[in-house]
Design a protein around this nucleic acid. Structure first.
Lengths: 191, 191
DNA sequence: AGCTTACCATACGTGTGCGTATGGATAGTG
DNA sequence: CACTATCCATACGCACACGTATGGTAAGCT
């Protein structure tokens, strides 16, 4: 087995970084080749065309984005008893987390959401992901809120705060954005 | 005075439509020329280059996006006494309004917000617009909420719901998205 | 009628990016 | 050592898009 200088997975990861940084139009083969230190010849050996790479990018995102978030909350069993409310607070805290494998997972999320506005196939994938996340949020809210209508309203509020705060550029008079987000989330989870 | 077949304003409007439909990368001169029924020669007479058109697009957006929304709420003085809470409900209702001059104003907003994530100058413009909108929202919330911290939290929640709900593709078990949004807004404006 | 101005068409050069075709290099295999 | 499979480089054709240069046309003025 020849050790590939740029295996298929490296193209997908580089594509994810480009997608997070500049949107789907920034996922250009020759630009990725330069960052990987190879040429297009490598790409067209691993992939049929550019669309195959975009599909691969969306596949990996759809596969890890949900489990990654949920397991990062459920897998905190090192502490005491994780209540549903503490899990929701952790979920809100993850909103402003910028880590992962050199990629900001939130940036990928935002880029795909804007992409889904003009691509029907991407919209269908996003719908699957969002429904799974909303299901998880609903299960947490239901532990301390019986009214189904109220659960739905507060879920959408929390989800919208998580996403929308990244698209809003307002200042907050001395308070930082992270502080306001935390305050808003705490207000959502009370009673 | 010669009647221009494609005056400068028509290029800006066509650019706004293209921006709303496909993002800033979709604002291509020759594509706009085809939709206007002219050629590039017209464009380079009205504008220096592509960047001048993008600046013009952002100028008109920045000029009308705030006043357009606020005056559409304050200018509803045909009814009885417009309370602050009813104004907030109208502001929430405008979220899902798709009208204007053939352009969906929300789509332009969303495209510019994603654009601002990777362009510093656009981010500065968005910051000015968002601060003005938040100022207006704060003034409404303050009429029935004294705590400044709570005002700020609920403003960001409402603003995030307005923006974020457009980027979320989840279903709601029988209820429509518009119903959940209305319910969430009502929950925000109570007490 | 002649001239000027406003507005647009046409044609060209250039850069960039996709996809293809083909050759070369390297490691494993018989 | 020959042979093959894996992986990548190189070179090309093509399409599109920006910007420029230049010519053309119609309206208004004198």
């Amino acid at each position: 087995m020849v050790v590939a200088r740029a295996p298929r997975s490296s193209w997908t990861e580089a594509g994810l970084r480009a997608l997070a940084a500049g949107g789907p139009d920034a996922v250009r083969i020759e630009a990725l080749a330069r960052t990987l230190g190879v040429t297009k010849g490598s790409f067209y050996w691993h992939f049929d065309n550019r669309h195959a790479l975009l599909d691969d990018i969306l596949d990996t995102w759809e596969r890890v984005s949900v489990d990654e978030v949920i397991e990062r909350i459920e897998g905190t069993s090192g502490d005491e008893d994780p209540t549903a409310r503490s899990k929701l607070e952790r979920l809100g805290a993850i909103a402003s987390s910028s880590e992962a494998l050199g990629i900001e997972p939130v940036a990928v999320d935002l880029a795909i959401r804007d992409w889904a506005r003009r691509d029907e196939k991407v919209a269908r994938r996003l719908r699957r992901v969002d429904n799974r996340r909303m299901d998880y949020m609903r299960s947490l809210f239901r532990t301390f809120c019986t009214d189904a209508t109220e659960v739905e309203d507060r879920c959408l509020l929390g989800f919208s705060l998580w996403i929308g705060s990244n698209f809003i550029a307002a200042d907050h008079h001395g308070r930082s954005r992270a502080e306001v987000i935390q305050g808003a989330f705490r207000r959502l989870f009370d009673a």
